[in-house]
Design a protein around this nucleic acid. Structure first.
Length: 650
RNA sequence: GCUGGAUUAGCUCAGCUGGUAGAGCACGUCACUCGUAAUGACGGGGUCCGGGGUUCGAGUCCCCGAUCCAGCUCCA
């Protein structure tokens, strides 16, 4: 019998009998690998384990530990779910059912619609299918045959999908009686899907277009073992506890009222955090050569017509009339910034001119997209407009990139970068867009930053670099953005006098660092699970007398810290010390200072840290030094559960 | 905006098939005077989201609206 040689990921090669499959290879490497294998990457392509290998193939066996391996696993689970749905509800029409990051979904149309109550029955059916351990089989059929098949079944969604495929041959994957249009690959058999759970049902438009009919999307997740599933579910429960909407109430930071949907109310403690963020912001801007401006909220309609917002952003804007004159409430700060630039003659010697603005904007967001502080209708952008000569673009863009990195590193945030290009609705010439996009790309390349291209997602006046922070629920939020703009200077006829004595057109960068303060605060709450670093904590220390007899000393400690600028409170009153500690812990106060007879005698405090617990007694002065240093350096909590993320930014 | 779900005390929630509301926490009073995550007793507190309708009777059923939640679409 002749043999073939295949190359493994580590560069070594393996000899196998001719006609061997990837599964045979896995078996040859080791039975445990064969057991946990989900698929194979053959010459860079993810394929099923049943794929026959050829001489010289480069083969990697995929398991659930890799993204591609998970993809195969989840994709197969989606098929099992679809099969189960059809068994429970035979009239259901299937649309699409792909794997996603933490599981899979299937979009279906059923009458009556499938609801959460149907899930247990579907899960039970899935369990049966898994237990039957049915092999997945790949088949190829001519396009015409596939069309005829799905037309006959009345599966109009599958028919549409097939019609859009250019290939004359269509791939099916089948297990038992269930056949689905699918490129694959899939697991060898259904029996590998040991642990799964259906999580939710929600509406989703066919092909993601809101003009199309709404289907039901059933979400599920699956793992090779029960243990992994349980861990995943526990993680989800933990993430829920960090939800900023929940913590916002518990920590009394902000609230929403039904009279103002999407309009947040900030409470005193929320304002302490926000003001600490803004103090830092002011200082950083001062150091980096920014001036600060403030422009009006309401401005004449004519301005918005000139800026292009009237034509390109109207559906998101609010309007009002004053003395029968039309005004708009600003959705962006840029036109105001342009007017300030234009308020004086500018020389190349004035450039770059960096004008920062904490600009409060209002945008009419669709009611269904509002989400706590993350998506609101009124928010304050930490905006800035940098007016510069074309030669200064790269340095200025790099300056902002460095600024963003400095700020995000301070919080230990991970972030991803995207470059967004010209959208359909856009102003300015093709050439302007080309230049602007190239300039941003250059800056990113010079910095050696990895980024993803986001075609057509730029602002209507220019391309942008976006920074997305991942929150604790693994959602990604756009925060910082750097937008390069050749168009607005044109529209507002901005100019500067060059060294040649001629007038030239400046270029503008629009940028934010936090993005929206509201959203950034929301992300911070979730990131720290409410346990803000000391420099941000609404209350930095609570003094707790062990008994009323020590209240005088407690007050002395309090005033000593207060004089030093510490946000300190004393918990007086009849409750027990334990109870007061519990309260402070619940409120995530970084330091609890327990004082009684021993402390009073020694002018000391017994320090309890919210994470490290009882640290023992310290002289009051020593504690104050330590606390002040922690605040000044903006240190992260030593035992914070986010500490390991420090410096892990992309 | 769309689809589905939810809305009961300040908060978290219970309230079966219709018979006019309950718990824990929080709050108040009193007692306790306490050494590192809940001392005890008593007490006050509710337009059951709003508006219509069905019914002898609606927190509960139906319709309209508001807000919130999940997802879709869209964004800082």
């Amino acid at each position: 019998m002749s043999t073939i040689q295949v190359v493994l990921p580590d560069g070594s090669s393996k000899e196998l009998p001719e006609g061997s499959t990837a599964l045979d290879l896995a078996q040859a490497i080791g039975p445990r690998l064969a057991k946990s294998a989900t698929g194979a990457r053959i010459n860079g392509e993810v394929l099923s384990l049943q794929t026959p290998l050829k001489n010289g193939d480069e083969v990697a066996i995929l398991t659930f530990d890799s993204k591609d391996g998970q993809y195969v696993f989840h994709h197969s689970a989606a098929h099992v779910m679809a099969d189960a749905i059809l068994r429970v509800r035979p009239d259901t029409k299937l649309a699409i059912g792909p794997p996603i990051e933490d599981g899979f979904y299937y979009d279906v149309e059923a009458e009556p619609p499938i609801t959460e109550e149907d899930l247990p029955a579907i899960e039970a059916e899935m369990a049966r299918i898994v237990k039957e351990d049915i092999p997945f089989v790949r088949r190829e059929v001519p396009k015409e045959e596939a069309l005829a098949h799905f037309r006959e079944k009345g599966d109009q969604y599958k028919v549409e999908l097939i019609e859009d495929l250019d290939d004359g041959t269509i791939t099916y994957f089948q297990h038992g009686d269930f056949t689905d249009l699918c490129r694959g690959p899939h697991l060898p058999s259904t029996g590998k899907i040991k642990a799964f759970k259906l999580l939710s049902v929600a509406g989703a438009y066919w092909r993601g277009d809101e003009r199309n009919p709404m289907l039901q999307r059933i979400y599920g997740t699956a793992f090779p073992s029960k243990k992994q599933l349980d861990e995943y579910l526990a993680l989800r429960a933990e993430a829920e506890k960090r939800d900023h909407r929940k913590l916002g109430r518990q920590l009394d930071l902000f609230s929403f009222q039904s009279v103002g949907p999407g309009f947040p109310f900030f409470h005193p403690k929320g304002m302490v955090v926000m003001n600490a963020l803004l103090d830092y912001w002011h200082e950083e801007h001062r150091k980096r050569g920014y001036g600060q401006v403030r422009t009006p909220i309401i401005l004449d309609r004519a301005l918005w017509e000139q800026s292009g917002h009237w034509d390109h952003y109207k559906e998101n804007m609010y309007f009002t009339q004053i003395d029968e004159r039309d005004f708009a409430i600003k959705p962006m700060n840029c036109p105001g910034g342009m007017l300030i630039y234009r308020s004086d003659r500018r020389s190349y010697r004035d450039l770059p001119l960096r004008l920062a603005e904490l600009g409060t904007v209002h945008r009419h967001e669709k009611s269904g997209v509002l989400h706590g502080l993350m998506r609101v209708r009124m928010f304050t952008q930490d905006d800035a407009h940098i007016f510069m000569t074309p030669e200064q673009i790269q340095d200025e863009v790099i300056g902002v990139i460095d600024f963003v990195d400095a700020v995000y590193s301070l919080f230990g945030f991970e972030y991803a970068v995207e470059l967004s290009t010209r959208p359909e609705k856009a102003i300015g010439t093709e050439e302007m867009w080309q230049n602007a996009t190239d300039a941003l790309r250059n800056a990113l390349d010079v910095k050696g930053i990895d980024y993803r291209i986001n075609e057509g997602d730029g602002a209507f006046y220019g391309p942008k670099i976006d920074f997305h922070i991942r929150d604790s629920l693994k959602r990604s939020w756009q925060c910082a953005t750097i937008q390069l703009d050749f168009a607005m200077p044109e529209k507002f006829d901005l100019e500067y006098t060059g060294s040649d004595g001629q007038f030239h057109r400046p270029v503008v960068i629009h940028r934010v660092i936090y993005g929206a303060i509201e959203r950034f605060l929301g992300i911070l709450i979730e990131h720290f699970a409410g346990a803000f670093p000391v420099w941000l904590a609404p209350v930095q220390a609570v003094v707790i007398p062990v008994a009323p007899a020590f209240e005088d000393y407690a007050r002395r400690v309090e005033s000593r810290l207060f004089e030093a600028g510490i946000r300190v409170e004393t918990d007086l009153g009849p409750d027990t010390m334990k109870y007061k500690i519990r309260n402070a812990q619940t409120q995530q106060v970084p330091y609890m200072l327990v004082v009684g007879e021993r402390e009073r005698e020694n002018e000391a405090v017994s320090v309890r840290h919210r994470r490290l617990g009882d640290l023992g007694a310290l002289p009051l002065d020593a504690f104050l030094d330590r606390l002040t240093a922690e605040i000044d350096t903006k240190a992260l909590d030593p035992a914070s559960n986010t500490a390991e993320q420090v410096g892990a930014s992309s």
